[in-house]
Design a protein around this nucleic acid. Structure first.
Length: 317
DNA sequence: CGGAGGGGTACCTGGTCATC
DNA sequence: GATGACCAGGTACCCCTCCG
């Protein structure tokens, strides 16, 4: 089915320090961002193409497969995903003075984490389990390419809609295997089943509890907390993996057992956001290289196009 | 006694690095 | 260049202690 443009809307940026370019770049794929235009699938029928027409003036072209759509609802969801009204001034005060991340402030200031649906956040989380950044995002990219819906958007080109829980349920074993998910494929199947049975809700921004998620086999605290960060902008509990734990030990000279508590003490209710920021600031390089960079004080993204990093993922995959 | 919580370890899979 | 050993890293699970 064809997506036709139904409306062009202005998206108001309600904060001073917003960076569309950074927000669109971070952890994104080439079929969603091309350096200027950002594709945001809103629901089964609606896709939004966002562009910065002037500094902090965003324009959203709404594409739909159906005639009747609620434009104000789409605009509201687009604004929420982009975090254009998220005031982070308190967070900046900590960031500017933090010994690990302050050097990345100049480069990354203005960035927001793009909000996702719960389903999408769980897929991201499960693919990140026991995997390096590169490995995890390659898995996710394969999921998109193998099971997602390839769609052509005029003014952008080809994009891919994330496979739905139903798409995953219908996929063959072989198809899932070809996504190189390993043991994760059975977790993803189980998740898809929960969404299909409506035991999990995929409404954008709907609140969910960490405990509710960790009850699911295959979802532990890391994946649950990452899902809360991405799907609810809940930053109070941080998804701290061993990578970050070791980095905290090195950077702040605390013991491994105190690392998590220490991180929460520094960042308070923004601990989860700081976690994501740390991965971007250190280009998500593997632990040994990250520790090396901390020793050299290279705690900001290198911004080299040829590297595969959270900020340049869209140039490569 | 029973539940909560913490520690240790096995499991799994792709990445990395040393060795030939 | 091929091979194999080891590592990274999140979760599951078992066992232990603690506390009411």
């Amino acid at each position: 089915m064809k997506y036709n443009i139904v409306s062009k809307e202005k998206i108001d940026v309600g904060v001073e320090d917003y960076s569309f370019r950074l927000t669109a770049s971070a952890y994104n794929f080439s079929w969603y961002y091309n350096g200027s235009k950002l594709v945001l699938p809103i629901n089964d029928n609606v896709v939004v193409l966002v562009e910065e027409v002037e500094r902090n003036k965003l324009e959203a072209s709404i594409y739909s497969r159906t005639r009747e759509i609620d434009v104000s609802d789409v605009v509201e969801k687009t604004a929420w995903i982009l975090g254009v009204n998220e005031d982070l001034s308190e967070f900046y005060e900590i960031w500017k003075n933090d010994s690990l991340l302050s050097r990345s402030y100049k480069v990354l200031r203005g960035i927001r984490i793009r909000g996702t649906s719960l389903w999408q956040s769980l897929l991201i989380g499960v693919c990140q389990q026991n995997a390096s950044f590169k490995q995890g995002w390659r898995m996710l990219a394969l999921l998109y390419k193998t099971l997602g819906k390839h769609v052509y958007i005029k003014g952008f080109g080809e994009t891919i809609i994330l496979p739905s829980p139903l798409d995953v349920a219908r996929a063959s074993e072989q198809q899932l295997r070809s996504c190189k998910l390993g043991y994760r494929s059975s977790i993803i199947r189980r998740l898809a089943q929960l969404f299909n049975r409506k035991e999990l809700s995929d409404t954008i921004g709907a609140p969910i509890d960490e405990k509710e998620l960790t009850r699911i086999k295959g979802i532990g605290p890391y994946t649950a907390r990452l899902a809360l960060v991405l799907s609810c902008r809940r930053y109070d509990k941080a998804p701290i993996d061993r990578w970050l734990k070791r980095i905290i030990v090195e950077a702040y000279k605390v013991s491994e057992s105190d690392a998590e508590e220490y991180w929460h003490r520094i960042w308070g209710k923004y601990a989860g956001l700081a976690t994501i920021l740390a991965t971007i600031a250190l280009d998500a390089v593997v632990l040994t290289k990250a520790l090396d960079r901390i020793r050299k004080g290279q705690t900001y993204p290198l911004l080299r196009e040829e590297l595969l990093t959270p900020l340049t993922l869209w140039r490569h995959i």
